[in-house]
Design a protein around this nucleic acid. Structure first.
Lengths: 260, 260
DNA sequence: CGCAGAATTGATACATCTCAAGCTGGGTGG
DNA sequence: CCACCCAGCTTGAGATGTATCAATTCTGCG
């Protein structure tokens, strides 16, 4: 049902020292509740490229991304695929109350997940409100992000799509510490051109061309294929077609999310 | 903040006789809880075409669609718009814990909403689990539907998009009573060509052309511009690019949803 | 060194958009 | 009751953005 975890098994870790303690589904839990979660939790590690869950498979756990990045993908019979979610640390995977996985979950970098056995987790959701409340909040944020993305997919040009993706990834990176340096925003792309294409509803060739165009126009600076510098973030936003206003758009920075 | 309700004010109605009692956010409430909801609720009616809420406006209520259909739309500065949700009876509007509306909500038919004052509703969510649990379930369904739609927007052809929309509307209609007649599935389109275009990320001309094409190919039969007969539902599904399998796709039939 | 996966770039095809005319049906006022 | 009107819709012809097919060129790694 899921592939063998190949990366070194993560050390069993105390929740109170967990890096995602305050953002994940357990964010609101008190000491007692945390103890209960400790009992039903275990860590799994995956290598970059490994599939965490296959769409349609039975799934007897839910969990949070502790570190690394995973993608959520939906496919059609003829091979076309669309990414429907990008899972970053603290994001939630799995749906309480559902048997099977609805999407493929794939690790794009080395990945560590904190998993909860589903049955006990569901029981806990019934009895204590804190987990359910937090999950609701995260799910609502994720819904906003999905709707934001519908606008990108349905109405934006290829160039705007690329700019939107860069803005989202850039914003998220800066959230997580890397401060807007005087020299501009700097980050690494966690996705291949093909993965970006899957996210944006484009082909990888078009992605490549538009990135080249943005580079030529000075909107971004590339070192190698993955390392990006954005000298003027406002310019990037303008290229994305959004006004600077924080609408539901902030969903992505408010984040902590739900899934599969 | 919202336009005057112009349609005749709906009669104050008892929850226990409410047509959406078992599907809406109140589905799991017991008698006591229902009494509390009764106290904070009021009905609003809107005429077809009226805007229920403007994106960015302060929103001091949340509520359920009782009858009629509304759309949830996101716009860009230059006028491009993308529909991000279709609100049918029992669907939920508004986000607890948020001040402003994230999207425009527009009535596409005459509409009746059951509204709850936000403050008391939020307090109730804190204290009793049934409302929050139901809302979580509805939000998760809505998230699945949104992701399903991302595949449509990102990867499907115009013809497949139209077929997908017809399948969704058709399926929903048949859910709500109208049985798959021997003569095939019959329903009325609740949307103009332009609204369909906004939903599908197309222009209204392309929508029109593809509908004509599906008609010419015998996939659908049109009487007037809105009345549709689908002689062979499986054929329609095939045209939509989906296999018949019920994946997350069933989100739309399992429904009862969240919003704005 | 050379290979393999990832990315770039080019030439061409095609789906969808854009702009522009008409059509249709239901409502309205003379 | 009829003529008109207008929003919604259809259809056409041409422009355009993105996909597709096909070489190369990178880049890291055994």
């Amino acid at each position: 049902m899921f592939q063998q975890s190949v990366a070194a098994p993560a050390r069993h870790q105390n929740c109170s020292e967990c890096p995602i303690r305050h953002r994940a589904v357990c964010a609101r839990c008190d000491g007692d509740e945390l103890d209960r979660l400790e009992e039903m939790k275990y860590y799994r590690s995956f290598q970059a490229g490994q599939t965490v869950v296959w769409s349609g498979d039975r799934m007897d756990f839910v969990g949070s991304v502790v570190s690394g990045i995973a993608t959520l993908t939906q496919g059609m019979e003829d091979g076309r695929t669309q990414m429907v979610g990008l899972l970053l640390p603290s994001d939630f995977v799995g749906r309480p109350g559902r048997q099977g996985a609805a999407y493929d979950v794939v690790a794009t970098t080395d990945l560590v997940m904190c998993c909860f056995r589903k049955k006990p987790f569901e029981e806990m959701m019934e009895r204590t409100p804190h987990v359910a409340q937090r999950l609701l909040q995260m799910t609502l944020d994720e819904l906003d992000a999905a709707r934001e993305w519908m606008l990108v997919l349905g109405r934006k040009t290829a160039r705007e799509k690329i700019a939107s993706l860069l803005a989202i990834i850039g914003r998220r990176s800066s959230d997580l510490g890397v401060m807007p340096k005087p020299g501009g925003l700097v980050f690494d792309l966690p996705l291949t051109r093909e993965a970006m294409a899957d996210y944006l509803g484009l082909t990888l060739e078009t992605v490549s061309r538009q990135i080249s165009a943005l580079k030529k126009d000075g909107v971004i600076i590339l070192e190698g294929k993955r390392h990006v510098t954005v000298p003027d973030f406002a310019r990037l936003i303008a290229e994305s077609g959004d006004d600077g206003t924080v609408g539901a758009g902030a969903a992505w920075s408010r984040r902590g999310a739900t899934t599969s």
